[in-house]
Nucleic acid binder design. Structure first.
Lengths: 352, 352
DNA sequence: CTGTTAGCGCTTTCAT
DNA sequence: ATGAAAGCGCTAACAG
């Protein structure tokens, strides 16, 4: 009753394997087997043991298990985009694939900016992971080396535009950007801007694609490439479009590095009374769920994000069993989804 | 050159503490100390040791460390909403607070629906976590008991409408819903619907608040409460509003359980040519970044999600040091942000 | 400040 | 099918 006088909890003398063994009248190893390889224990014993386990509320100590078996059952997912909307679908894919196994997932954010991917990777290695899913920002040779000598299988995901250390699943971001840019050209836009948030590997690839297509037409203007190094967001999209139109009122379209930027751009156009798609075309990237629901709906590039996650986990799980194979690259492909926001001269421009 | 003939890697004879010790001509424990409590080792030795560590590429084995010290340095974050947009800000808060420590975070999704929170919790416990951040869906007494006898500090986050086992950080969802509903009434809306996606604890709390305010005015109509049990999304918001207006054309406002539903509702109104806010009011929840950027901008209830995460991690870290205190509840409060989507009779209705 | 001894809880290997 | 012994790599507790 008297506050502050509560006895400390957190004391629960931990139930160990030998406790269970003793209670069940068998040796520790038999309990261990009953839990992990039930078929190697006689049915009768097995049942007894499992009952005792249940009764005593025994839970294996993962640290001890990992130490003894050199297998943590841990899949490490390492990405700077951990807290990004785009990564949610990837996580779902990974989780769904892993759910039926007894592996666990540990996410880690290698910290923004600084080149400490190496540190984080090393750290992961120190946990005897069963596998690692890695989303690289940069890709210098030191990192490549590190991945190559990883103590477990590694799948690099999202981008497949360069040879992976071992396995990779994703799409070719350069090609995706080319397709989007070409689409804008086909719709008759000429002063096309690019709105982006950060300049990681993939963004750079997209810029390359964007630039090459426009340069071929003599239409590339570097001053139409806008970015701020911060979290991508709808608000940022509005801000960038505002800047774009203030400085370059003649810009007539934007290819955005993500749909949230595109949505922000759309709102800003509406606010300025600039008709989308007739006076301004918008193409996003990622095909987030709202792209198809927006009014007008947003043209975007669909990435199979869920599938990338699912497939990566799948490859990892398979690789865990067998030995090493030669480098494997899986390109899951993208899809340009043309919608109203670039449908110039379409039946009816919804906005302006 | 011949593919498939590559020698198996993953072999790197692991460098252990004693390897380093031997190379440095000291005992293992000294190396251990040099790494964890540098001030307890003479500067000269320390430097030598750290150099050798670097040279040999030694990385501590976390499993061994956890086993020996009974401290995994792991903070478990357990939430069914791991892959939800709303949780991203919470994660950022947690990560930011934890970054400066040597703790690590392990996220886990207790699986959708089924009542296996208990299993997941037990599993976490088996890793000797330093602390646990828990987002509950349900809150039965069995679970409460489990939390109460956790082997580490536990912070329950998001909702503070009931007494926690130990510590809690969040807001009162019932009050938040009451505020939102009252706001809609004040703006003159009368046939107010509620659009939601799932019926977890917090959603139920919000429904209670919504219902009580409307009932006090004799305006509650259960047939205006719509929900589907699935991921919340912009598309779902559009769908629910479509259903609402088809069945109840006289509905004149909606309180949405999340801003993505609200945004979808807005788009659907625009599509139907129903003016927001004059012919229909929309109030969201969460105050996602786009709420303020949308056109018209969306009225919403702001939750301090980042702060909740940061604070939860902070409390955990503090609790790690000291012993147990009496149950602690921190209500971080919400804020109703009135914007255009409920500004009936405002200077200028942007849409219709 | 540095070292010795013991043991964390489990699994491996080898017997039986 | 079951068990005994040994040890995974590290740190706690105590000595010196």
């Amino acid at each position: 009753m008297i506050p502050g006088t509560r006895r400390r909890r957190h004391r629960h003398e931990k139930v160990t394997l030998s406790d269970v063994a003793q209670a069940a009248g068998v040796s520790a190893i038999t309990v261990s087997r009953a839990l992990r390889e039930p078929e190697k224990v006689s049915p009768a014993l097995r049942e007894t043991i499992l009952r005792v386990v249940e009764q005593m509320g025994y839970v294996p100590d993962m640290a001890a298990r990992a130490l003894a078996s050199k297998d943590s059952g841990l899949i490490g997912v390492l990405t700077p985009g951990l807290t990004s909307y785009a990564f949610i679908a990837v996580m779902r894919g990974i989780e769904d694939r892993v759910r039926s196994t007894d592996l666990r997932i540990q996410y880690a954010n290698p910290g923004d900016g600084r080149n400490d991917d190496g540190r984080k990777l090393r750290f992961f290695f120190s946990q005897n992971p069963a596998g690692i899913i890695y989303v690289g920002l940069q890709h210098d040779s030191a990192l490549d080396d590190l991945l190559r000598r990883a103590p477990c299988p590694v799948v690099e995901i999202m981008d497949v535009s360069h040879a992976p250390a071992e396995m990779a699943v994703g799409i070719d971001h350069r090609l995706a950007a080319e397709a989007a840019t070409r689409h804008l050209l086909e719709q008759g836009y000429r002063r096309i801007a690019m709105l982006g948030a950060s300049w990681d590997n993939r963004s750079k690839r997209r810029l390359e694609g964007f630039q090459s297509v426009l340069e071929a037409e003599g239409l590339f203007d570097p001053s139409l490439v806008l970015s701020i190094d911060s979290y991508t967001s709808v608000g940022l999209g509005a801000h960038l479009l505002d800047r774009l139109l203030s400085d370059h009122p003649d810009a007539d379209a934007a290819f955005c590095h993500s749909d949230d930027l595109a949505l922000g751009a759309l709102f800003e156009c509406q606010r300025r009374g600039r008709s989308v798609p007739n006076e301004f075309g918008i193409c996003g990237f990622n095909d987030f769920d709202y792209a198809g629901v927006a009014f007008p709906s947003l043209t975007s590039v669909r990435l199979p994000r869920y599938e990338i996650g699912y497939r990566a986990a799948d490859m990892l799980i398979r690789a865990t069993g067998g030995g090493r194979q030669a480098p494997t690259v899986v390109d899951l492909g993208f899809q340009l989804i043309a919608r109203q926001s670039t449908a110039r001269n379409a039946p009816k421009g919804p906005t302006g």
